Amino acid sequence: MKEKISQLATLFSAFVMAGCCLGPLIFIPLGLTGLAGGLAIYALKYQTMLMIVTIVLLAYSFYLVYGRGCKKKSSIVSLWMTTVVVLGMFLYTFIAKGYL
């Protein structure tokens, strides 16, 4: 159960980290322009810290699944799906900022 909570926390921190670029794409079509703007400002201000938190949470998720010898296939599959989504958010953020 801990690995699921850790993976959800990782996804949440990655979404907030990518909020400057990804948030407006999701929230503006839903009519939540104020939320998109607030998230973009917050994400830009704390983006470096959120990147570090996301990486630490992802490492903790890997520890919970592989370090403790978790044999559940669903935990392993969801961990790798979380990793792919988080890496996609990092890549999207770097492309949007012009680093790549």
Score class of each variant (00 low, 15 high):
1 M>C: 08
1 M>T: 09
1 M>F: 09
2 K>N: 14
2 K>R: 10
2 K>W: 15
3 E>L: 13
3 E>S: 13
10 T>C: 00
10 T>S: 02
10 T>K: 02
12 F>H: 12
12 F>Y: 11
12 F>W: 12
14 A>S: 04
14 A>C: 04
16 V>R: 00
17 M>Q: 00
18 A>F: 04
19 G>F: 00
20 C>N: 09
23 G>D: 00
27 F>V: 01
27 F>R: 00
28 I>T: 12
28 I>N: 14
31 G>T: 00
31 G>W: 06
34 G>H: 05
35 L>C: 05
37 G>H: 08
37 G>F: 05
38 G>C: 08
39 L>F: 01
39 L>P: 03
41 I>N: 05
43 A>H: 04
44 L>A: 10
44 L>Q: 13
44 L>H: 14
45 K>N: 15
45 K>A: 15
45 K>I: 10
46 Y>E: 09
47 Q>D: 14
48 T>G: 15
49 M>H: 07
51 M>I: 11
51 M>V: 10
52 I>A: 02
53 V>L: 08
53 V>P: 03
53 V>H: 05
55 I>E: 03
58 L>I: 11
59 A>P: 00
62 F>K: 01
62 F>I: 02
63 Y>T: 07
64 L>Q: 08
65 V>M: 04
66 Y>G: 01
68 R>N: 15
68 R>W: 11
70 C>P: 10
70 C>Y: 09
73 K>E: 09
73 K>Q: 13
76 I>S: 01
77 V>H: 12
78 S>P: 06
78 S>R: 14
78 S>N: 14
82 T>K: 03
83 T>Q: 06
85 V>Y: 02
86 V>Y: 03
87 L>H: 08
87 L>N: 09
87 L>A: 12
88 G>S: 08
88 G>V: 02
89 M>C: 08
89 M>L: 11
89 M>F: 06
90 F>E: 00
90 F>C: 06
90 F>S: 01
90 F>V: 01
91 L>W: 14
94 F>D: 02
97 K>G: 11
98 G>R: 10
98 G>V: 11
99 Y>A: 14
100 L>S: 13
